[in-house]
Design a binder for these strands. Structure first.
Lengths: 215, 215, 215, 215
DNA sequence: TATGAATGAGCCTTCATTCAT
DNA sequence: GATGAATGAAGGCTCATTCAT
């Protein structure tokens, strides 16, 4: 068999095992069993268990990047549909192959410095993408001039929360579309009833002044 | 030494070790070394390594509950200050003792079913609290009638994202107050410039109709 | 409490525990729990776990001796009843307190050199007693002049086999009286039908001669 | 090295160690030291310390069965020689490799339910074999119609007693042949001098009547 | 390249014994 | 005498990694 193919088989076996059992519970024995190769063969293609996990993160990262690069940022004429389509696309990536999400969210994030750095790169890619979208519509005067990074991180966090609950933990049964729609509405229009915008804004200003006075 | 005291010492030692090295990398040997007791002593107070971790989650949960119970939900006259104060209080709990957060967020969430259930209880307590706040101001007609649970989860997720970045991973240097303030503004007023509310709402409706037509 | 009393309580607790769980599975913790004293108290009366076991063997040995010494060897006029009564008495000792038997047969026999020596003393006492009985009736011309020690050991072994099966392992449900009666009949009259005694004796002689020829 | 061979080496090492030190005192460390392999290698071939012991019992059981199956039950023309040859064969099995006997008699019998069940199977095989022999000669009218199982158990017990004393504990120096010969004589002809058979039988009857009267 | 038997450091846990109170 | 918390040696077992074939 071609070396590259062997390596790929092992990588996919590792993906399945890590997603199933988690990094620590997964053993090299499980991986080679799933790949149907001998124990020693594993070490022909990967330096260690850590190494195959790192390779896995690379693989997932690259897969995600391919998707993101396929999205045009500047064409959408309709802000809402644009946002929804684009975010849905990211969600689809993780939902198509739930193992990806299991690994990224459950395992890689806090496994060690190296892993968390790699996840951070992914997060950064997503954030940059969201930032670009927000900035695009801010420049068009449609969105208010809030810090785009803050918005991106906030949205990412909110979305991750629901994704975790729904896909990883299975605590929510609502459809991903419905959730996403509501989430976007919340982020776009905010909580406050427009009638009370002025009142609310006044309060906000007062609080700021109080705090400055206290400081 | 009084048994209760010894147990507490071991618990705190375990908290430090688990926060430092993570559940898997932490050994009972580390814990007893930190507590400066013999190996066997550990098993006088805890059934196993798992057991001490569970006890730790209980301890953190109870500590957090004490804080939350101290907050009056129905008195705040000012929505913004109320929300900010209350959320800040939760944040303070985790920030005072970063180890708490390390353990809850990095380790407990996905360690196993038992642990994730416990973390879920905590999340639930926080969500319920946020839901109560949102509902309070919805009934007062100040907030729009969005699903309070959705709002609560979204806010929790967004907040967690920043907390992780700032406290656990150290990627952000902005002050927690500033972040919280911006976050609340985002959730309250939304992204869209009020001038374009009507336009945006129209788009939203169109999208809905398109989708129904497609279905 | 009087020291002697305390010691006795511990000894009896140990007897129960050792009989229940066996020497190795029994822990000092079990013994002190059964005796309702503190862990340390145990070591006030016994040097070690081994020590309490040795003391237990002494105790059982003495109890058995008291019984045996109470039996008159020379008065019985009737050989069968005499044998049966006497053997039944030994059996009764172990059956009254099954724990005795559990400990002697299951644990002490092969635990270590010291224990097996003690059990051997007991066995010796029983054998000597049986030897005396056999010899008594041999001198009266009732029993054939077989080696009395051989007879005693053989009987002891056969009896032990049934006792183990019945009391320790629970494999036999027949009453001890019935078994004993049959056993004694077997030992007294033998297997061969008297009609064939001569024939059998001839065979026996032939075999002996063959073997001598082969040697 | 071939797996089967390694496993066999470990099994034999375990046999030696268990026979030497007993189940509890023997450590996996001792076994792997005797087999001159690493600790982990042991667990390549056996699930646990218990497991290797069980495997050992199987091995001994099978070895014994091979011997027993080689014995024709129905051909012997001479009762005495037949019995002696056959029993001697069983004895030889244990005497050739004393470790077998050490393990079966000292350790396995009362270690736990599983072990004692296995030993019981062996005992059963021997008993059945003896029963068949006895029954064979009973049908030929040579032996009296005593319960064959009782006879078999009694003989087995008596034989075990001597075997233990001689081989395991080293208390007897007489040759096994001499002992066996005497034992068989005892079982065949019984203790009572034929001249007194009638007298003895009368006594026996009287005892029975007395007991019935008392009941 | 592929194999899989062998390795051994390292982990969790138990329990007889000690000792300060 | 009595207590029971503390001890730590010892034991069973796992698993990532190596290496001779």
């Amino acid at each position: 068999m071609e070396p590259t193919e062997r390596r790929r088989e092992l990588l996919l076996a590792a993906k399945k095992i890590f997603a199933d059992k988690g990094y620590h519970a997964a053993g090299v024995a499980d991986i080679v069993a799933a790949a149907e190769v001998a124990r020693g063969t594993f070490y022909l293609y990967f330096k260690s268990k850590r190494d195959v996990f790192a390779a896995l993160l690379d693989y997932i990262f690259e897969s995600l990047m391919k998707r993101l690069q396929a999205i045009p940022l500047d064409q959408p004429e309709q802000i809402l549909k644009g946002l929804m389509d684009n975010v849905a696309l990211v969600e689809a990536f993780f939902e198509e192959d739930t193992e990806h999400a299991q690994i990224i969210i459950r395992e890689a994030m806090f496994l060690d410095e190296d892993s968390s750095r790699r996840v951070d790169e992914m997060r950064h890619a997503l954030v940059e993408y969201l930032v670009a979208v927000v900035r695009h519509w801010q420049e068009a005067g449609i969105l208010r001039p809030l810090d785009p990074e803050l918005v991106a991180h906030a949205f990412l966090g909110a979305w991750r929360e629901f994704f975790e609950q729904r896909v990883i933990l299975g605590n929510i049964t609502a459809s991903s579309e419905k959730i996403l729609e509501n989430l976007i509405q919340l982020f776009l229009f905010g909580l406050i009833d427009p009638e009370h915008f002025t009142l609310a804004a006044d309060h906000l200003r007062e609080i700021g002044e109080e705090e400055e006075a206290n400081a």
